[in-house]
Computed example of a mutant assay.
Amino acid sequence: MTEASTTVRRGRPRNEQAREAILDVAMESLLAHGVAAMNMDAVAAAAGVSKATIYRWWPSKETLAMDALYRTWESAPIAPDTGSLRDDLRNLLWPWTELIARRPYGRVIAGLLGQVVTDPDFALTYRARFLDQRRDHGRMILQQAIARGEIPARTRIETVLDMLYGPVYHRLMHGHAPLDHIFIDGVVDIVLDGIHPRPDRQPRHETADSETP
């Protein structure tokens, strides 16, 4: 644990200090080894707690991993309303992408997704933590753009959100190309080019509410 983190925690209740220490150690282990290879005995020893203490708060390594990752990713700032859809989407994706590109978070997400597909209860919590909040903000941005007349009212919002976030997760998981501002700008531009109606295309009779979130 760093001197800075120790200073920040001074004066906090003992249980909170222990919890923060566990999350710190777990995050470092996850980034180094991934979810499956994280050793709970090693985490307990490094955090200065018993393994029973960890399991009292987190019933599995996956739930510990989810909390550790959430605490790190929730630090991404909320994008302001600029009045421009293009700028709003860039501001939505840039800070988060900068955060996740700094360290090998792809191996952590891969481990969590393995649990998502086998454990329905875990999947619900995971989606609430890592999908719903971010998608809610993106949904609001698109709805505001519709209200301004910037994009058609029939825009399929849920599909647009998938198209925005899908490429980011693709690069995060595969690591085949950089996650940077140039990439985000390209994603936003391509998606918006698809949203804006072309003269030679007849609109389909669908609305933003026609999809199931």
Rank of each mutant, 00 (worst) to 15 (best):
E3N: 10
E3L: 12
A4E: 12
A4T: 13
S5R: 15
S5K: 12
V8W: 06
G11A: 06
R12H: 10
P13Q: 04
P13F: 06
P13G: 05
N15M: 09
E16R: 10
E16F: 05
E20M: 08
A21P: 00
A21Q: 02
I22L: 08
D24A: 09
V25T: 09
A26Y: 02
L31S: 03
H33F: 11
H33M: 03
A37V: 04
A37G: 05
N39Y: 03
D41H: 12
A42P: 00
A42C: 07
V43M: 03
A44R: 02
A45C: 03
A46T: 08
V49H: 00
V49M: 02
S50A: 08
A52M: 10
Y55C: 05
W57Q: 12
P59Y: 04
S60L: 03
K61R: 15
T63I: 08
T63G: 00
L64K: 01
D67L: 01
A68R: 03
L69D: 02
R71E: 13
W73K: 01
E74K: 14
S75Q: 15
P77E: 05
P77W: 00
P80N: 09
P80Y: 08
P80M: 09
L85E: 00
L85A: 00
R86C: 04
N91D: 12
L92V: 02
L92F: 08
W94H: 13
P95D: 06
W96V: 07
T97Q: 01
E98Q: 14
E98P: 00
L99Q: 10
L99C: 02
I100L: 04
I100A: 01
R103M: 10
P104V: 06
P104R: 01
Y105C: 06
R107E: 09
R107M: 11
I109T: 12
I109S: 07
L113S: 04
G114N: 10
Q115I: 03
V116K: 02
V117R: 13
V117T: 14
T118K: 11
D119I: 05
D121A: 13
D121C: 05
T125M: 08
R127V: 09
A128D: 12
A128T: 09
D132N: 11
Q133A: 14
R135M: 10
R139P: 00
M140R: 15
I141R: 04
L142D: 06
Q143H: 13
Q144L: 14
Q144N: 15
I146V: 15
G149S: 05
G149Q: 04
E150S: 13
P152C: 03
T155D: 05
T159N: 10
V160G: 01
M163E: 10
M163W: 09
L164W: 01
Y165K: 04
P167S: 07
V168T: 07
Y169D: 11
R171H: 11
G175L: 04
A177H: 06
D180V: 08
F183E: 07
F183M: 15
I184H: 02
G186H: 10
G186M: 03
V187H: 03
V188S: 01
V188K: 01
I190W: 06
L192M: 15
L192A: 06
L192I: 15
D193G: 09
G194H: 06
H196N: 11
H196I: 13
H196M: 11
P197Q: 12
R201N: 11
R201E: 15
Q202D: 13
H205S: 13
H205N: 12
E206R: 11
E206H: 08
E206N: 07
A208S: 15
A208Q: 11
A208W: 11
D209P: 04
P213E: 07
